[in-house]
Design a protein around this nucleic acid. Structure first.
Lengths: 201, 201
DNA sequence: GTTTTGTTTAACCATTTGGTTGACAAAAGT
DNA sequence: ACTTTTGTCAACCAAATGGTTAAACAAAAC
């Protein structure tokens, strides 16, 4: 087992534990057990719990951020952009369903992390889409809407069903399978819903 | 200072600490300090950290749940119901902005709490609205939509901007004041957006 | 084949943390 | 008045936790 392997095994185990329990709930011993190694190895490769956490957090951001900016910045008709976003972003989250809640919780716990990690990832990626929406509104191609609200709406409807899954499952009285179906449907539903709302008919 | 006072002071301090740091991040000593009281008092009134946490959690649920079910169950035209919901629910959350993130995090950490606290609060409150939407679709009064998705959309767009505030502030490059304005606007924007999407035009 | 460098482990350590105890005072009950 | 109950606190405790150390071990490097 090479050193890169060990380091990677640690990061994977740490990811599992941190993402499901959060920084405060995570235990170094649990991470070590999950990685089947001695607890000292965690400190050998990542000096402290804080450093290990930061590695996990940055990875989480780097999974979620690029696709968001990529789609938002792409030169593409607005409606295609919306369909593209809901479809591929909901797919992405399905593969990493713990990440949104994890990021949200840790960022609320300590909004400081943002300055360290975020600013570099998101520059002004939103600028291009903002002008695109504003121009379409001016040209009467879509109903009047503030780009900020449009973005919030799309992102909220895509991500929220994952972070609020336990509550929504209970309120809607769905079992796991039925809820998964619902999430799958949203890949197209959200886009249709948004486009219906802003298109001139 | 009467005993009821002390108990209440403790619950208030515990609420502050638990809601901002979560169960795992909260420290009994910090709660005691915030309440200006000896740590033993916490155990005198609420036997354990777990019990104190449950009291805080139940209070949080009881703040958020009734208004949701009340509006959803009310006999009222659908569009009024939607406007009523976004307006009064966003107002409510503004007054308790830590609660949604708190509930979401704790519920993801331990979905078990749900069985203990939730089931009683939400019965089949969603049933009435479900038939209302289905009937309107059948009668051709609104565009076809699954009631589940409609609810998810409304709730997501209302709550998500609060839980994802740090990220959204960064992505949209807003300062605190500008973000508050955005939240205020959403009381009517979300309803308009939803109604635009489902109404026959 | 010996030295050196990097990797892994078991045993420890200091601090933090939830929780307990016993003394004591202030009401409440008699 | 005095006895009991209730409320409050300082000191204490055992367990858990992040982190360290020194020695064993393995793998290159010489």
């Amino acid at each position: 087992m090479s050193n890169k392997d060990t380091e990677h095994i640690i990061l994977n185990a740490a990811t599992e534990v941190f993402q499901s329990k959060g920084m405060d709930g995570a235990r170094m011993q649990e991470i070590a057990d999950k990685a089947n190694i001695n607890k000292s190895m965690l400190h050998y490769y990542y000096r402290s719990k804080q450093k290990l956490f930061e590695a996990v957090f940055k990875t989480a951001i780097s999974i979620m951020a690029p696709k968001l900016t990529e789609i938002i910045e792409k030169e593409e008709p607005l409606f295609d952009k919306i369909r593209n976003f809901t479809n591929s972003y909901i797919s992405l989250i399905s593969k990493h369903s713990y990440i949104p809640t994890f990021i949200i919780h840790e960022l609320n716990r300590n909004p400081q992390i943002l300055e360290d990690t975020f600013v570099k990832k998101f520059g002004n990626s939103f600028g291009k889409m903002k002008t695109q929406v504003n121009e379409m509104v001016e040209n009467g191609e879509i109903r009047p809407i503030e780009p900020e609200h449009l973005i919030m709406n799309v992102v909220a409807m895509s991500i929220f069903p994952f972070v609020a899954k336990p509550i929504l499952k209970a309120v809607l009285q769905k079992d796991e399978a039925a809820y998964q179906t619902l999430l799958e449907e949203r890949k197209t539903h959200v886009a249709d819903f948004v486009i219906n709302s802003i298109k001139i008919s």
